[in-house]
Amino acid sequence: MRPATLLRTAVWLSVIAFLWRPSAFAAVFAPFTHDGAPAIYDQGDLADLALAHLGLVLFATALSAVIAVLLAVVVTRGPGRAFLPMSRSLVSIGQTFPPVAVLAVAVPLVGFGSLPALIALVAYGLLPVFENALTGLAELPASVLEAADGVGMDAWQRLWSIELPLAGPLIVEGLRQTLVISVGTATLGSTVAAKGLGEVIIAGLLSDNTAFVLQGGLLTGLMAILLHDAIGRIGAYVLPRQG
């Protein structure tokens, strides 16, 4: 086995082992507690919270990816092209919006729970995918498009079998950025009562228990790294080879 594969397998196995039997790792986290506080999060099932966190992130990312790619397709053709200049400025303005602000404004509109977190994640996740899909679709070489027209493809065929696959690698790269940002932002969701690993971190902050903070932080950090890695590999497998 190559070292990278070995490392990847080891990380996956240890995360799964930790979620399956957290109590077996008590000795690892015990040094970070004091005054006899529990070393392993005991106010809920860690595997449950991790799954809820992952589900929220994946659902939000899928939703924002679909919306972002659709928007990018619309503004790069036909009458939608009138929106192209402002789309570019909106992306750069949108990225200066702090995620906390998006989350905070969503709460009064829809109440507490997972919904405001979902809205914030979708809104914030749109930007990287949209930006990359826009670059990918708007900057295709004219010769390629003319060739597609030349072999008699209609607009749909050209989009589906030429433009989207060519923009694919950039879109996947945007998706990876979105996933990493979302995993981190979703922890903030726990401040508005969304279910997820943020609960573990906040419980640790409130009870001054670093072991909890470490568990929540490590699990979310590893989740981000593993997702980033996995999407890259899936993308390389699905997309046609280029160059």
């Binding site: 995993v183 981190g184 903030l188 943020g198 971190i201 902050l205 470490l214 932080g217 979310t220 950090g221």
Partner: peptide, 17 residues
């Protein structure tokens, strides 16, 4: 890069101890 993947609340919390 690994530091960047740690969520902000967790990093703040880990530095408290």
């Amino acid at each position: 890069s690994v530091v960047q993947t740690v969520p902000s609340i967790a990093l703040f919390g880990m530095l408290m101890a």
